[in-house]
Design a protein around this nucleic acid. Structure first.
Lengths: 260, 260
DNA sequence: TCTTTCGGTTCAATATATGAACCTTAGCTT
DNA sequence: AAGCTAAGGTTCATATATTGAACCGAAAGA
């Protein structure tokens, strides 16, 4: 792997640590030499991607990504467009809603609207959503071209619970159901006791860019409730997609839709 | 410079381009060889820091920084804490307000609340604020330790307008006034016709982490108005700082402030 | 006190990055 | 339509940056 790749992997590792970590800790997590780790950290720090606490000497995520994220957001306002719909969906469903975005071959959680209930599903911002074991992943993948599906299903599929689907044939069937239905359903895929539904956010006829999902405790997931949540997620996803891609088309080609 | 440094500089360059750019364009902007540029872009793309448009083959900022930024924001909620105060300040002052964060030796704009007026100052999210030529920069620097001030003032200082202060002696005086006053004032430092005021966001007795600034057209910047805006910015900065660092102390040491 | 582990550094060995030259395609000029 | 230019992308010998075992001093545990 190239040096850049290693450094960015290190950054990713840091982002996944619960809290600030020391040099040796980070080196161990990344499987890198301490000297190498240090040089990477120093370089990343120079550019603001990590920070070192001057007292504890531990390292944490820096401020540079914030600037980049804000720039991206002004050009492709995924969060600012989707968040209000996520909030609406959360209050409608009374359950935790999360938004994910596809980047670097992975689907990662970029926003969470917590349910107001005491008993609710907790989703961490920044967590990676496996394609085969989450509603978001299935809802996303179902609308991808066959080669992407093949790529995911031909890799080893981890069983996170004893009910995680790992058989490619069954998953293919689940995906085609999802495609037909318009939203995905996932029972206990990543964590036992959680049922979730999701729908992809996408330009018409194009690969999805992310997904919106509702996650509920299984005790509140009657068949009919799940269907309601699924349809609501699908509607939210469609409205977000229209706002993101419909308007962009207007901006790019004003004649396409006058007075839209 | 290390390969990592070069790659991150390239990423920074891309973030600064107005719009998506082609390979040769990017190579020229970075002063790198086309082959090198390409390898960097491929590597950055693998990790989601840049995206390539499959049609135009142009490159743009990717989604990975969004995930990192959200993680950082959950650990250090700078934007979510500061934004409401910025909005309040913007409506109070009736002028554009912007928030900046210090990272990688630079102060960069991470949020903007636009003034409602037709005639207003425009600030771009992601723009870099020079320390000597903006209210944010001066307000930040004034509260930094002397060695940081020396470092900035000993480097060449660009004159962005014919009124930009570039004389280190005068700047030192401006900084000490700012320190005494609690907020900075900058007349036509970066752009002619703009007057701005700013105050640093900081833990007590510690180096600032950013600044909040109000920017107004010079035609609306009477001496008294400027003072009012300055005091308002200072108040906003103080309240943001308390929320950020006051609460953190409580969390770290619950006995320090019971029933806060 | 002794031991271990920490953050951080050094330098010879070596793996990696580099860029001139190249290819192919797309658009423009003549 | 041929000819030209510049685009994106690739190759491979060369040059350079990366690597990691061994090292240091400090600090935390035993």
């Amino acid at each position: 792997m190239s040096t850049i790749g290693k450094a960015l992997t290190l950054l990713d590792t840091i982002s996944r640590l619960e809290k600030e970590a020391g040099l040796s800790d980070i080196a161990r997590h990344c499987g890198l030499d301490k000297a190498t780790t240090r040089r990477f950290l120093v370089e990343l720090e120079k550019h603001g991607f990590v920070e070192q606490d001057p007292e504890t000497r531990r390292y944490r995520l820096g401020g540079a990504p914030v600037r980049l994220a804000r720039i991206r957001e002004t050009r492709f306002p995924y969060l600012s467009v989707a968040t209000p719909f996520a909030r609406e969906l959360a209050s409608l469903a009374g359950e935790t809603v999360h938004l994910s975005e596809y980047a670097a071959g992975r689907l990662s959680t970029v926003h969470v609207e917590d349910s107001q209930r005491a008993h609710r599903v907790i989703v961490d911002v920044g967590s990676i959503l496996p394609f085969h074991a989450t509603a978001s992943g299935l809802g996303f993948l179902a609308f991808c071209p066959p080669k992407d599906i093949d790529a995911v299903l031909s890799a080893p599929l981890e069983a996170f619970t004893d009910q995680t689907l790992t058989d490619p044939a069954i998953l293919r069937q689940t995906l085609s159901e999802t495609l037909r239905r318009g939203y995905s359903i996932c029972h206990h895929g990543l964590e036992t006791g959680v049922v979730s539904v999701a729908a992809p956010i996408r330009a018409p006829g194009s690969t999805p860019v992310g997904a919106i999902a509702v996650a509920a405790p299984a005790t509140r997931a009657e068949k009919e409730t799940v269907e309601q949540m699924g349809r609501a997620a699908m509607t939210a996803a469609r409205r977000i997609s229209e706002r993101l891609f419909g308007l962009e088309q207007v901006a790019a080609d004003p004649l396409a839709r006058r007075a839209g």
